[in-house]
Design a binder for these strands. Structure first.
Lengths: 244, 244
DNA sequence: TGACATATTATACGGACGTCCAGATAGTTT
DNA sequence: AAACTATCTGGACGTCCGTATAATATGTCA
């Protein structure tokens, strides 16, 4: 399959399934024995895609990683592109909800909205998940870093993450009403790129500093301050996005 | 070929070949008729890899793009991994030389070294090449964005780009001698990630701002000010990279 | 001119790929 | 028990993959 087959096909399959159930789920009073298998497949796909990227992973590798046969992956995951989108969408709610909750906290708290608060509310949840002990969240963080950093995948990402990003841009606009929307969008995108580097470029930081790689959480304060400081500099100087 | 085959193999093939010659080159007094063909192959590979990434490109696609037969790609490019590394290394000197020249200018100019000058000297050359009319440089910029943003490729990138990056970190340390090396490395990596976003995430910026995509050069001032402001904020507050 | 190195063609090989499907299995319902 | 549905197995399909190679062409040198 060429990468062309990933070009913005239809809609995303049900991405709200994030219910961890011990006992097999029932739908219409029917026992769904395959739920556990389905999770095994999606977990394995998450690890594979996060480690090697869409194109470098074969369905047979996913099957081997999950400990199931080839047909099972197709049965639960559909086509390779479907599987990818399902994995991508599976955890999106958790991240979006946490970001929204942090932003709501900021609004309800005493004091007014600050740029630093907005930046931290957007960046910290990803860092926290990426640094948690959960290897599946680590794999998902790597997958997000791989996917979001590439415009080829933007069509898949926009429906999942852009609505929340728009809310944060709106919050930024509250603090800086004079700023153009495009400038705010660029600043948030720069921040996201730096954020993803914390996962995707850990080895390079370690190599440049000649030290051992660290968990993403080690860079939290540095990153938040970098992005906040960068945004405030741009906005205070009224620098605008403009064709050269 | 799985991505595993790209794991830091041997050394890079001669990456200093950047001599644009009109007349066929001579080696040992012998005419090298294949020089033009070799360039066609490398140019085509550059476009393919820049557009779709290593794993999604087949040697047959490169051959078709170059207008040559399959065997020619192997003859001039060697294995797929060799071809990739050759393409990566081909233009590295131009970028490194320009960055070094800008830094040298800064040092020799009146006034002392500033963080903004250092940042601009590192970021601007890439933006300029990426925004030039040359489609091959655009393809190379996309390839770099794809490659540098992924730690899986770090082993290929470090020999090519890290020596110059170290020089810039050293320059940053001149301005801020109190800063830890790891903090400086992280700050430069954040800046590089933001820089690459200007090429790799143009569609997302445009989507978030609901406007048409722009050339990378449109973001030059915003990006440089963002990175400079972010660095100065972190360094002035003595924020350090630390395990959580 | 013949010997020779370079360059290119056409083709073949073994293997991995994504997808599909007939059939076996097992739990649920009637 | 029989019918039914969800789940899973094993294997096949045609296609494309990266690589290698024998044969041929092209231009250089002795």
């Amino acid at each position: 399959m060429s990468s062309k087959d990933r070009d913005c096909p239809a809609a995303l399959p049900g991405g709200t399934a994030d219910a961890p159930e011990e006992t097999p789920a029932r739908v219409d009073g029917r026992l769904l024995r395959g739920e556990a298998t389905r999770d095994k497949v999606l977990d394995a796909a998450e690890r594979c895609f996060g480690r090697d990227g869409f194109d470098a992973v074969s369905i047979r590798q996913v099957a081997a990683e999950a400990g199931v046969t080839l047909g099972v992956v197709g049965f639960h995951g559909g086509s390779k592109a479907d599987l990818f989108r399902t994995v991508l969408a599976r955890r999106v709610n958790a991240l979006n909800l946490l970001r929204r909750a942090r932003l709501t906290e900021l609004r309800s708290a005493r004091g007014r909205l600050t740029l630093r608060g907005i930046v931290a509310a957007y960046l910290a949840p990803y860092i926290d998940y990426a640094s948690s002990g959960d290897p599946q969240w680590q794999a998902y963080a790597a997958l997000i870093a791989r996917t979001t950093a590439d415009d080829r995948n933007y069509c898949h990402v926009r429906d999942l993450y852009d609505p929340v990003a728009q809310e944060f841009i709106a919050a930024m606009a509250e603090v800086h009403p004079e700023a153009e929307r495009e400038t705010l969008a660029a600043l948030l995108t720069f921040s996201v790129a730096s954020l993803l580097a914390v996962v995707a470029s850990r080895a390079r930081i370690a190599g440049l500093a000649d030290c051992a790689p660290r968990l993403p959480s080690a860079y939290r304060d540095t990153l938040i301050e970098f992005c906040t400081g960068g945004m405030e500099r741009v906005l205070s100087q009224s620098i605008r996005v403009r064709p050269a």
